[in-house]
Design a protein around this nucleic acid. Structure first.
Lengths: 184, 184
DNA sequence: ATGACATTTCAATAAATTCTGAAGACATTG
DNA sequence: CAATGTCTTCAGAATTTATTGAAATGTCAT
């Protein structure tokens, strides 16, 4: 039996933690429910069933099923098949770095690339446009936006590549970030 | 007159860029409209009126007004008062770092602190709870979550403090991030 | 003060997102 | 293979968020 059999204090603490994690990952574009379910699994001393989670978190069976499916797609929750058990059990991935870097690699990076590409495309359109004074200025600023998106992508890539925990390169990269006071 | 008088290519490029920026900041919890309006102002060679923006971005007067108000609250758009002009003109802040660091300072930081505090509070609740084997394990994992949130906050603070463009300290901090393969 | 615009506000509406609950699929056991 | 318990799916409900449009407010020139 899970910690559901434990005293109310423990359950309350787990829910509080789940809420905190839920809010945090909501800021990263995930549904809050994902954070709550992951946290309950992560903090549980043993794998839980969908039903356990539904009761603990007061979610419908459907919501739990969909949430678990999404968590599994992200590789942050695994099935924990138990011999001799009809029901499925689930457990949380515990390697934070693995989870975080995956999201950065598959999600944040795609956004950064798409943003950079579209800005670059816009800049290219201006190359071809008639070169009035105004459009020149617009073009120059657009190039700065492209450069910023490029920098963001480079930082992201450095972070992603640093799976070996050598982060020093990020420091070097950031030296080139715009300095305070340097308006243009 | 603004670049609205320019040829269609320029306007199209500005809209494309605005969309890209809008999507990017949407990921940071802002409305897409904020990114589009800011981009139009930033790329314009001169300040624009609310009306210019409404026409260019096909937004209602009300939406433009609210969006400009929010952008001004974030200090990323300023009024550009023009002597002898009835209407108000607006121009974009051009210092990226100023804008980004402000958002980190006022928004991301608040989230990180709240998350850390709530996790710490949950952990504290477990200190007091009866110490069964299960709750001990839960407690241990919860402490790891607290440590992670603490690390995230430290990175954020380092980033915010690095207004002088010395980012090397971030590299040092990150040395303590969980290493790949180090499961626990 | 009045008229002519410009801007803000906000209730109503629209759009987007999330959740529920029930039907059906699937698997296991007797 | 029927009965039972579990899991998934998805249309509709509920909720949240964003936008509109129009009334209210403000501003300036006459």
């Amino acid at each position: 039996m899970s910690y559901q059999a434990e005293n109310a204090k423990v359950r309350e603490a787990v829910l509080l933690a789940g809420d905190a994690v839920g809010d945090a990952i909501e800021h990263w574009g995930f549904r809050k429910a994902l954070g709550r379910v992951w946290t309950s699994l992560y903090l549980s001393s043993e794998p839980l069933t969908a039903n356990d989670l539904a009761k603990e978190l007061k979610m419908s069976a459907g919501a739990v099923s969909m949430t678990l499916a999404e968590l599994r797609r992200w590789g942050v929750v695994q099935r924990a098949l138990r011999p001799g058990e009809r029901r499925e059990f689930f457990e949380a991935e515990t390697d934070f770095w693995k989870m975080i870097s995956r999201v950065f690699r598959e999600r944040e990076r795609a956004l950064a690339v798409s943003c950079r590409d579209r800005l670059a495309q816009a800049a290219e359109m201006l190359e071809k446009a008639e070169k009035s004074r105004e459009s020149r200025e617009t073009h120059q600023r657009l190039r700065k936006l492209v450069a910023l998106s490029q920098l963001a992508l480079a930082i992201l890539d450095t972070f992603i590549a640093s799976q070996t925990a050598d982060f020093s390169s990020i420091g070097k990269l950031l030296q080139f970030a715009p300095k305070r006071g340097a308006k243009s």
